[in-house]
Design a protein around this nucleic acid. Structure first.
Lengths: 369, 369
DNA sequence: AGGACCATAGTGAACGATCACTTTTTGCGT
DNA sequence: ACGCAAAAAGTGATCGTTCACTATGGTCCT
């Protein structure tokens, strides 16, 4: 049966230019027709498979006459190399994997950047999400590395040190230090210098009493922002009425303001992100405080709607795409033994909007408007 | 040389339990050590490769004693099957591709859903973004289909009809009708029934003069919302002061309100999305109108910050993950010739918040507060 | 003319697994 | 003990390509 089928293929090849018509005829009957192989092409062109192979990879030194015959045969059969088979022989798959803790979460912008860079480099990208903790992810990572399917792996989250060292022997792996276990930003992402800059700017405007509403302390980025806040406040000699430990939610922003004793009233709030900032603004309004008249508020993330709130939200724009792209570039450079191009400037850009302004004219906090 | 190396491997196998120590010894010297193959495992276990293969795929009828030997050998060598080789023989790659117009854009939630479903089904997922228009994408899609690397392809955007019919002969392809060329929602996503429901609800509250700020008319979803608005207004016999043709932006929301002649003042605005709605609220404030006191506003998308704006934004939550997941389920069902599970309820959920309320008490529009 | 040398093309053997068979072993009834 | 089917394990071929060689033919030099 199999033999018969093969013979049929041979006959087909002889028909040459009729292939098109044949294809149509077969549509109904035998849809799952075998794809032509390099051998079919070789036979049709009257050369050896090796010669066709040479043509395919680099146009390597074929005589013009031969070259044309091969090209014709390929065109005629509508041949395309079987990449799986090629991978098997060359041990190059042209595929990279990106592994991330939970696909449901948001670093899709980062993923987009990484993916684009990989594709520009001629690689396919598999996005693999691994649930569970470090342990599970490390396991999955090893599995991926050993599957032989990937030339390189970009992990957006850390893995067990033991596994990591094991990994590096087998595959090129770049572990982006930008997210931790639960996809909480660390590394570059946790850089909180914009907090310092914002406080400096506000202090220059005359603000002297600050409040920080922190994000979930499990997140390195939340901790970093908090720490930067504390450092900046101390260094600049301005007063901090405290730090409210929140959880990234809008509610925590509201609660932070609600729970402020009326005697300790800040003139500026550094919120952990835009959602929190929106909550803070809301809380302030509850207490009858005007933003920015009585209180300046800053956010983080540049959420789209923030620009059209009243007041529009001062925030920090984070170049997640670039972050992803940089990590991927590092991986590809590693694969090619070339030096990774150094990435340019800062990932952050502060956008000043209406929610920040000079402090209340009297300089006295607690004033009602 | 090669021969020598192989012989060394053989010797190694004989050492059996010493393999671990050997591995450590080699770490420094010969990092790029050959991965163990199924044959190595078979040799170590004293069985044939076929037996090991049987064990790997389904735990097919091995004698307990054999099974244990195989398992030990696998563990000892830290063996994992080479998926590329397996793919070659089985002609199943276990990989699906998702193709989308521009990775930069936002349907990442949909992607997340699709991806999760695929992984639950045991597939790898390649996310491929194809720039250019229908033409370029169709071309790329054909290429992917012919690469033989994918068992199925999920396209989140339409392709040329000619290409589509060609495709279906070669691979299983599901073309999600939810986005068009430029990733503009169509199909289910363009379903605008929530608009009708919102208008009904507002009319029941007593609203009688409506305004719609539409999204970019190039988007099917924008057109559908607009049409639904027009239909509902007509059917319910309420007044429409008009439709402002916007572009999804916050600015268009502001502009829509600014450009309203003061005699034609609506009591409710159906905005194309949350960003527009935020703009509308801002515009209203510019004119001294209170939201929702003078004007009710609805959005669409359930953007995070909307909940904490003042007033918090009434909006429509769209289950993008489910949409993606459903599409992927359809693809996988197609691959397995099984019936796709029917998806349950609506993709939409209206969230009523502060930005909508009863119309101004007098019923007379134009009243200043 | 002989040989060195390059350009071109072909040969057989991998790559690592599974498939379709065949062979051996086991279990059980008579 | 024997036969006989079922269970367990083995054999050789094969998937489609490329690698490391080898073979052929032609050109040029001495």
């Amino acid at each position: 049966m199999n033999d018969h089928f093969l013979r049929q293929e041979c006959v087909l090849s002889d028909f040459g230019t009729l292939a098109d018509g044949w294809e149509k005829r077969m549509d109904g009957a035998d849809t799952a027709r075998r794809r032509p192989t390099i051998t079919d092409v070789a036979r049709l062109a009257g050369v050896s498979p090796q010669t066709v192979s040479r043509y395919l990879r680099f146009n390597g030194g074929l005589k013009p006459a031969t070259l044309e015959r091969v090209e014709n045969a390929i065109r005629e059969l509508d041949y395309r190399p079987n990449l799986v088979a090629r991978s098997m022989r060359t041990r190059k798959t042209g595929r990279l994997a990106i592994i991330m803790p939970a696909m449901a979460f948001n670093p899709s912008r980062m993923l987009a950047g990484a993916s684009a860079t990989a594709q520009a480099g001629g690689f396919f990208v598999d996005v693999v999400s691994a649930g569970g903790g470090v342990r599970a992810r490390s396991e999955r990572l090893l599995e991926l590395a050993d599957s032989g399917q990937f030339e390189g792996i970009l992990s957006l989250a850390p893995v067990l040190p033991a596994v990591e060292s094991k990994l590096h022997q087998r595959t090129t792996v770049v572990i982006s230090a930008d997210f931790d276990d639960e996809m909480r930003g660390i590394g570059q992402l946790a850089d909180a210098t914009p907090v310092v800059q914002m406080i400096e700017h506000l202090a220059a405007l005359g603000h002297s009493r600050f409040l920080h509403v922190a994000g979930d302390a499990q997140f390195a980025s939340a901790r970093a922002r908090k720490q930067s806040y504390l450092d900046a406040v101390e260094r600049l000699g301005v007063e901090s009425v405290g730090v409210f430990d929140g959880d990234w939610s809008g509610e925590s922003g509201i609660e932070a303001i609600r729970s402020l004793p009326s005697h300790a009233r800040p003139t500026a709030v550094i919120a952990a992100n835009d959602l929190v900032a929106a909550g803070v603004v809301r809380g302030a309004r509850e207490r009858g405080w005007d933003v920015p008249g009585d209180l300046s508020v800053t956010g983080w993330d540049n959420a789209g709607v923030g620009q059209f709130m009243t007041p529009s939200l001062t925030t920090v724009d984070v170049e997640l795409e670039q972050l992803g792209s940089t990590a991927m570039a590092k991986l590809i450079a590693g694969l090619r033994d070339s030096a990774p191009e150094t990435s340019e400037g800062s990932l952050f850009r502060i956008i000043w909007r209406e929610s920040t302004a000079e402090p209340p004219a009297t300089g006295r906090a607690g004033r009602k408007r």
